[in-house]
Design a protein around this nucleic acid. Sequence first.
DNA 1: AATGGTCAAGTCAGC
DNA 2: GCTGACTTGACCATT
Length: 305
Amino acid sequence: MKIGYPCINRGIGCSANRTFRLASYSDERLLSTVRGNLECLERILSFNRASGLLFFRITSDLVPFASHPVCRADWQAELRPLFARAGELARRGDDRISMHPDQFVVINSPDRGLVERSVGELSYHATVLDLMGLDDTAKIQIHVGGVYGDREGSRNQFSRAYGDLPEPVIRRLVVENDDRRFTIRDCLEIHRETGIPVVYDHFHHRCHGNTGEIRGILEEVAGTWAARDGIPMADYSSQEPGRRTGTHATALDPDDFRQFLSASTPHDMDVMLEIKDKERSALAAAVIARSDPRFIHGPPRSPKT
DNA sequence: AATGGTCAAGTCAGC
DNA sequence: GCTGACTTGACCATT
């Protein structure tokens, strides 16, 4: 089990998702922004390694406007060595890397133009991971998409659209249950139709009113990951008290996290903590996970130097 | 230097 | 019909 956090490190003093306004786009601006973002990404990865956090989600904003028509800069060629260097850092540290495109990626949409733009965005994500030289365990996770008044039809549309995706995307794409539209059962059904691995999001599962046993579901989810896909990834968060259902907690709830770990034993997973204070909660969670030998699910890993 | 309106992109619930 | 939530506030024109 590796424990990680998404996109932003709040204590390190740099941001890997610096961007700028579309109106102020220039090739020079883009390249200098991405150089800065990659530099910060290296600092984050170094911090993570020193802290024992070996799972990290890279921000989708690493290359702003990457799939927008305004972007004409050849950032792949210009910055290839920098991507390779960041990737080398991740590989040396035995880091698990993921990405999570934002809500604008909807591959089951009835709007063909939107699907095309979504494929462009997914291809950009795959390019980043490819340039970093990461293997197929570095995943890109998305949600099923819109319901459009027809759950089953829209779920089937995801499976059809998945089959049409470019190979570099298919190698890395995984599907995750969301908090309101498609459940883990929907995702497992999509897996049966397509073979796509399924990410279990514990908090989203809870948002649908599920409070009980999760071992059976985790068993099924684990079966959707082939050896080349790596250890199953899971997202963890908890409800922020006093806010509407679905609002992520600002800080780790240690008791709830302990219960989650206990309920998931013996399934090994790499756990992404979607808590708003980021690395702080991830560090606290890692302490909890290490505190009880039952929670270190996988075979022990020798730290690489 | 501080601030507040606005920012590429979609869906849908809640008001 | 507008706003907020989603993996995440940050940019920048204006004062």
